[in-house]
C-alpha cells in the first residue's frame, strides 16, 4: 500500500474518532437481570461486571455505537449450587469463556425516545446477530438506556433440551451514564 494512502486512512480514521468523542457516554451504573421459566415458575437472576463503551448522541443515533462485556461468573439466581452449575461447561463455561460480548452494528431511531439496534451477541463461542429495541431517557443530565429482549438459550449452547426449563430467556439491561 502506498504510504500516502495509508496516511490518509489514518488521518480520516483519527478524525472520525475524535469527531465522535464528544458523544462518549461514561457509564455510571448498570443492572443486568434475566427471567426464565422453570417448571412454570419465573426464576430471576442477575449478572454483574459490566463494562461498556458507549458513543451516543440522541440526535444522531446512527453515528453512535454501543459495545459491552459481561462477566458470566457473577451469575446469581438465588440458589448457590444452581449458580455453580450455570458456570460450568454445560452452560456458560466461564473458565473457557470469561466474557459475554455485545457489539452494535447499527443503531437507529424509531420514534420519540425509542431506538433499535442491531447487535452481535457472543456467548461462549457462538456469535449471533440480534435486533433489540431500547429507550433512552435523559434524567438529571444522565442518559438511561433500557432494553428488554428475549433470546433462545439453546441458540447459544446454554444447556440442553428440557421439559422443565424453558428455552426463552428474557433479559433486561439498564445502563446509566453521563454524556
Amino acid at each position: 500500500m502506498p504510504k500516502s494512502v495509508f496516511t490518509l486512512i489514518l488521518i480520516l480514521f483519527t478524525f472520525a474518532v475524535s469527531a465522535q468523542e464528544k458523544d462518549q457516554v461514561n457509564l455510571v451504573s448498570s443492572e443486568v437481570s434475566f427471567v426464565i421459566k422453570n417448571a412454570g415458575i419465573n426464576v430471576d437472576g442477575s449478572m454483574e461486571g459490566l463494562t461498556a463503551n458507549i458513543l451516543f448522541n440522541p440526535k444522531k443515533p446512527q453515528k453512535g455505537s454501543i459495545s459491552g462485556t459481561l462477566d458470566p461468573a457473577t451469575i446469581k439466581t438465588g440458589i448457590g449450587m444452581r449458580d455453580k452449575h450455570l458456570k460450568n461447561e454445560d452452560y456458560f463455561d466461564v473458565e473457557n469463556y470469561p466474557q459475554i460480548k455485545m457489539q452494535s452494528n447499527s443503531l437507529r431511531k424509531l420514534q420519540g425516545n425509542q431506538y433499535e439496534g442491531l447487535f452481535t451477541l457472543t456467548i461462549k463461542d457462538i456469535t449471533r446477530e440480534i435486533s433489540l429495541p431500547f429507550t433512552v431517557t435523559e434524567e438529571n443530565d444522565q442518559f438511561i438506556f433500557d432494553t428488554s429482549f428475549e433470546i433462545n438459550r439453546q441458540d447459544f449452547g446454554l444447556g440442553d433440551d428440557s421439559i422443565i426449563l424453558s428455552d426463552m430467556v428474557k433479559i433486561n439491561i439498564r445502563l446509566t451514564g453521563t454524556p
Partner: peptide, 14 residues
C-alpha cells in the same frame, strides 16, 4: 408444589 419449583428441586427431581 410451588416451593418445589421455586427451590429448584424440580430440576433434578422432575
Amino acid at each position: 408444589e410451588v416451593i418445589f419449583a421455586e427451590q429448584g428441586c424440580v430440576t433434578c427431581h422432575p
